[in-house]
Design a protein around this nucleic acid. Structure first.
Lengths: 237, 237
DNA sequence: CGCGCCGTTGATTTGAATCAAGTATTGTGG
DNA sequence: CCACAATACTTGATTCAAATCAACGGCGCG
């Protein structure tokens, strides 16, 4: 779905109040820099299902996710899809070397991003090595996650994939919202399947199996971890 | 295999003569900086099969690969292995956020690296943003490759995996040694299997099948692309 | 020369995909 | 607010691609 009714707020917001101030790229900026930085970004809203940018697009902007969840994915010519990650608030999107995005990004549910035009953002970084270092840090962290995910895709069974996903997703939400055995899953079964390199049927069956074994409870829009130790045992393997 | 008979050369080498000078991290340094940089790195040799660093090791050094090929991999507790990449001359290894390497690295065949102690290297970067930018660039490039590989692992068939691997490997060698339809494969079938998320038998069968169809010829230590168009068609899917 | 590793090939099994319904949930227009 | 269409999810039957199990040939090395 292409962006249609996106809303661009007038600049009536302040970075200092921003929900992701503490852990996004901008965490590396001091209060003075932040005031300058404020003029670079614009808050933009996307509705559920809208595409924020596409794989083949020329990169004109970078994005700092403020609210909501996004799916990041690549498509093969015949339509097969691999989701390469889910983005959560604080994630920084759009860095690349080829001047083109190398994946597409859709809003899952309503999303708010802080959008930066590429050129001014580049200029702002130019003489602020600490911001560059922060960006580098985020890139290296992502690279580590990407490698972990390769292990999952290449060498784990369906059961292990699903168990690992549930625990990993809970862990990510934990650092945003605190610990809970109730794990919201805003993405569809198809999204989960395309993330784990499985089919929707296999994901569904695996969820059901986990529930039958008392490891989880399937809720609307999520799951509850009934027996975390059991799920961990499955994921470790 | 652990490093045993590694050789450390006395500092009788010059960065300006270095084979990877033009495209490694150090490409971003001017001649004066290079002279200072020279004192930071030491050339170290590893024999075939030796481990340069391991997943669980504390990071004490960064490595610039000068000669040879390395396999980078992660292991699951039960021994399943996923090769997350092959390193070629010019590749920069060891960057991480957790102070631990998040993968292991073995020499495939004889290898020469330029080894940098972490602390002095960090200090050297400190006031040289262009070097940091270069490192960032390499990290982002790798991230793109990692995402491509996720698509391969999660969504491609065995035939597509092998065909894509052969073309990709040829492409990488091309930028080092120029174009050729003869593609050396210094890694074992097991390595290829662990890179592609397949078994050794499936890799072997797929090679044989490609040969029977006249797409490739299997040589000792490599293959020859007889019908590149056909291999490309398989890889595209 | 013979042992061991690497790669190939064949037979069989199996985990996940595919094919095929059916049920629940959400959204829409009357 | 309800009827109905569309979408999301589940479940079952069957197929199939790749894994596993098994054996053998070739090459390299002590």
């Amino acid at each position: 779905m292409r962006a249609s009714v996106t809303t661009i707020e007038p600049n009536g917001h302040f970075c200092s109040d921003c929900a992701v101030r503490g852990f996004a790229v901008c965490a590396s900026l001091d209060p003075e820099e932040l005031r300058e930085f404020e003029h670079l970004g614009r808050r933009v809203h996307f509705a559920a299902g809208e595409t924020v940018f596409s794989e083949e697009d020329i990169t004109t902007s970078f994005y700092n996710l403020l609210e909501g969840v996004m799916r990041l994915y690549k498509l093969l010519p015949d339509g097969r899809r691999q989701i390469v990650g889910f983005a959560l608030p604080g994630d920084f999107l759009g860095m690349n070397i080829s001047d083109r995005h190398n994946f597409s990004a859709d809003a899952i549910g309503a999303v708010t991003v802080c959008q930066f035009a590429k050129a001014p953002f580049g200029r702002f970084i130019e003489d602020r090595p600490h911001l560059l270092r922060r960006i580098n840090e985020l890139a290296i962290r992502e690279l580590g996650q990407a490698r972990d995910h390769m292990v999952l895709l290449g060498r784990r069974s369906a059961d292990e994939k699903v168990a690992t996903f549930l625990l990993g997703w809970r862990e990510r939400l934990f650092s945003l919202k605190g610990s809970s055995n109730t794990v919201p899953l805003p993405m569809s079964r198809q999204d989960i399947a395309d993330y784990l390199g499985l089919t929707i049927e296999t994901v569904s069956r695996t969820f059901t199996k986990l529930e039958r074994h008392g490891a989880i409870e399937i809720l609307h829009g999520g799951i509850s971890l009934r027996d975390p130790a059991r799920v961990e045992a499955l994921a470790a393997a």
